[in-house]
Design a protein around this nucleic acid. Structure first.
Lengths: 344, 344
DNA sequence: CAACAAATGACAACCGATTGCCAATAGCTG
DNA sequence: CAGCTATTGGCAATCGGTTGTCATTTGTTG
């Protein structure tokens, strides 16, 4: 009366469907993946049976036989950095929409973990998105030649990338500070291995030269609020009246430290952050910062990766996408103090 | 001279290793997975060959033949909620340490997405951790009977759970407010479907009764900063002098709104948050809140899940774990105002 | 030294899908 | 209605491991 699988508690396979419809398993496979190659009536029967049996394709088996995993690895240096929240959400949404699973990995700011992960993902993912990579250019190029890969905030010739254009916003920020009368300014650098940080510094140095103001570089500092204390102290000691921080975490940490030291922001010191992360608008004072379309960057990265995965789907494959940024002025920047705070 | 695979660019398989060592593929499999069952010398040869060929087991194939995927799904309602950052990091660290891959899914506060995801993960994960589930008790029980599952912040008899004990901290918070002279207090409720919210309200109502103070419930409100504005307005209108918010996001949103309305915190209104998320310490004023060991909760959840997965590994399987919380007093709470702000 | 148990290695059947190849069938033309 | 082509369906190999079964070898004991 009933076929072997009818009513079985074991999840249904294409074989169960095939048996139920009296066709071969391969026909079921085709009906579900390439519907055009199967008779419409047969297909409908198969689809009905699949629905009746509550059939779910086994992803592992699919991956094994087809070589495609329908998964994409997303590597970020630090999950608890709010910057990556929005990025992750962007990639997750876009990947899900395209039927892919996101494999999220926190590489803990370590190039070794990153390299290992990339290596392991070789066979368990169709492609990789790497944010703020700590790998060398060569390693990235090598990885990109092995499998589809998109980097975020990293500029390596030959590697598809989404770049958030903070250097240009940095110039805006500099203009902002200069217009407020600041002439001695510090750049609070990020990790030594961060290309974003060095790119921004380069842009800043050029812009400072053009405007005839002094910008010195302090750091490197880890991109965490805790590092803000040391950064603040270094800034105060260097006698600058304004700081451009590598990111909002450091900037927020600086705000806290300056407050502890009894210095007022922005009266005694102006602070500019970068990224406009969660918290930048409600810290005290609210942070002037460079806003980036982070979630959008994640979505664009996914699109670029998918373009590599399905080259047929038209659309010239852009290999580099620059996301615009802008300065958001809040309360942490103000007129330069009349007297220098330290060292007259 | 060279075997088929030596120097091949195709990733090495156990068959390549087997050929290289002159043994059967199954021997290689055993040597790598159950080393005790293979001669030590043979094993060493195999291990050497594996290293030489840079062998990486194919996870898909492993999963297909063994039925174990070495992956665990982690479902959270909203990736961009800082509360979950620490949770995710906790699960990620612990899972990685145990050799599992974390499949992170943002269920977008939707019970439907959640149900679908649980269903899909059936075969692509060995177990599931669900934070702040929006599913019904029945649905959760059903899911838990299908596959290993641990819930976080959800109490359903028969479902292993990690509970963050906010109700008890809530009493502490109430005492704190009462000691400051507050007698009219509001509980700013979270989502209607959130069990955490209702559990806390229950505890609060009891404690309020005991202490002879009035606590009214306002809401429900979505757990986002944006909802804080409406919550603040509702609180002001209700004439209370202190609020216990469902979580820090709402509390921070309330701080912002109250400031906009020209009300001072804590002079005119005291605010208590919950979770002590990123940002709670540097908002303005810094938030008095109930601190939870969130990352630890994630780790415990993973441990409980792994205990289900490997029942042999000794250790009685705890099916319920309560994480302690405590009140962290900062600047958002203070003495009750002499005159009521509104409605005399 | 014979006999027996324990340890070990090889074979082959899966796991659940995909896919190349060929056969059967359909519909079409002449 | 025969003969042809264009579709469509089925067989079987394959992906890379795991695992049960069994034969062989090794080592130990009487």
């Amino acid at each position: 009366m009933t076929t072997q699988a009818a009513g079985a508690d074991r999840p249904a396979t294409i074989h169960d469907i095939a048996a139920r419809c009296g066709v071969a398993a391969s026909t079921v496979s085709r009906a579900l993946s390439t519907p055009d190659r199967v008779n419409i009536r047969t297909r409908e029967r198969i689809e009905a049976a699949a629905a009746a049996l509550n059939y779910r394709p086994n992803i592992q088996a699919k991956a094994l036989s087809s070589g495609r995993t329908s998964a994409v690895g997303v590597l970020v240096p630090d999950i608890t950095n709010p910057f990556y929240f929005d990025l992750i959400r962007g990639t997750q949404l876009q990947l899900k929409a395209a039927g892919y699973t996101q494999l999220l990995v926190d590489t803990e700011e370590s190039d070794e973990v990153e390299a290992t992960t990339v290596d392991q993902l070789q066979k368990s993912a169709d492609g990789i998105i790497v944010a703020a990579s700590r790998l060398t250019d060569e390693a990235l190029l090598a990885a990109a030649s092995t499998m589809p890969l998109v980097v975020i905030n990293r500029d390596v010739p030959g590697v598809p990338a989404v770049i958030i254009d903070t250097p240009s916003a940095t110039s805006q920020a500099l203009d902002h500070l200069v217009s407020l009368g600041h002439t001695r300014i510090a750049y609070i650098a990020g990790p030594a291995t961060s290309q974003s940080s060095s790119r921004r510094w380069t842009a800043l140095a050029v812009a400072a030269e053009e405007r005839g103001v002094e910008v010195r570089r302090l750091g490197p500092f880890a991109p965490k609020t805790q590092s803000g204390a040391a950064a603040a102290d270094a800034a105060v000691h260097s006698g600058v009246t304004a700081c451009l921080a590598f990111n909002d975490l450091i900037a927020i940490g600086m705000l806290q430290r300056l407050r502890e030291r009894g210095l007022r922001v922005p009266e005694d010191m102006s602070i500019v952050g970068c990224d406009d992360i969660f918290g930048a608008d409600f810290c005290n004072p609210p942070l002037t910062t460079m806003s980036s379309p982070i979630e959008q960057a994640g979505r664009v990265a996914v699109s670029m990766l998918l373009a590599q995965l399905n080259p047929l789907a038209g659309g010239g494959t852009r290999s580099r996408s620059v996301m615009p940024t802008h300065l958001t002025v809040r309360g942490s920047t103000g007129l330069a103090p009349k007297d220098t705070v330290e060292r007259s």
